[in-house]
Design a protein around this nucleic acid. Sequence first.
DNA 1: CAAAGGTCCTGCTCGC
DNA 2: TGCGAGCAGGACCTTT
Length: 271
Amino acid sequence: MPELPEVETTRRGISPHCQQQTISDVIIRNHRLRWPIAGSLPGKLRTQRIQDVQRRAKYLLFVTDSGTLILHLGMSGSLRICNKNEPVKKHDHVDIVLSSNKVIRFNDPRRFGSLHWTRQAVTKHKLIHELGPEPLGEQFNAQYLYNISRRRKVAIKNLIMNSHVVVGVGNIYASESLYLAGIHPARAASRISLQRYEKLVTAIRNVLQAAIESGGSTLNDFTQPDGQPGYFQHHFRVYGKAGQACEHCQQTIAQITQGQRSTFFCKSCQR
DNA sequence: CAAAGGTCCTGCTCGC
DNA sequence: TGCGAGCAGGACCTTT
């Protein structure tokens, strides 16, 4: 579910509810997420005042006076704001109870999400410190990608999905970006010119920015943090469109598997 | 049985 | 030979 735009949309959705708030309690109904939630987490968070809700890659960062809660939505996670006494739904694993008596409720069917508490600077945390640049930041540019891709024969799609190279490019937007840039997803990263990396970087930025601006795209059950079923069915050009016509050349859109993930592309537009 | 939006970890290969 | 970097595949889950 969450690609970067959904995570950013979630951040923007819950952020206003966190203003001036203190965490009064943390309720863990199921601690078995991707990594077991530390039993000490509620004690660490209780009484902490939330200063800010930030995002790094697809991690949401709840910055408090004495540390940071690092939350990842995994493949199927979502947050919503609800009242304390609202009945729990299936897969509602964690509640972060605020002093307003509102609750940030974490739901995650597949349990690939995670929660970590750190007292140190968040940039030093194991999960964060080796991450590549943000795709919408200045450090991510064509020259950077070009330099990093020399003598790397990995397929370009796998390269841009590698979080050590650049964060936040998920399976949907990897396919979409490569289509917009006219680059074949299986092309070796080392065999792409600087000029073509210019196109790719522009495509990645545009596609992510557009999705953020439209409130995040979604395939299934993304729920806006305020509880509204705020679907925005983004217009994908290739993702999930195997067998349909390319809107540019009418060639049938192909589907292949790369790194155990589906890739969609146009054989004639992408080289 | 297959596939689904993520990403860390393990172990292999390759080149210096 | 040894070492690090790069890379593929496995692992973690439930639902459709």
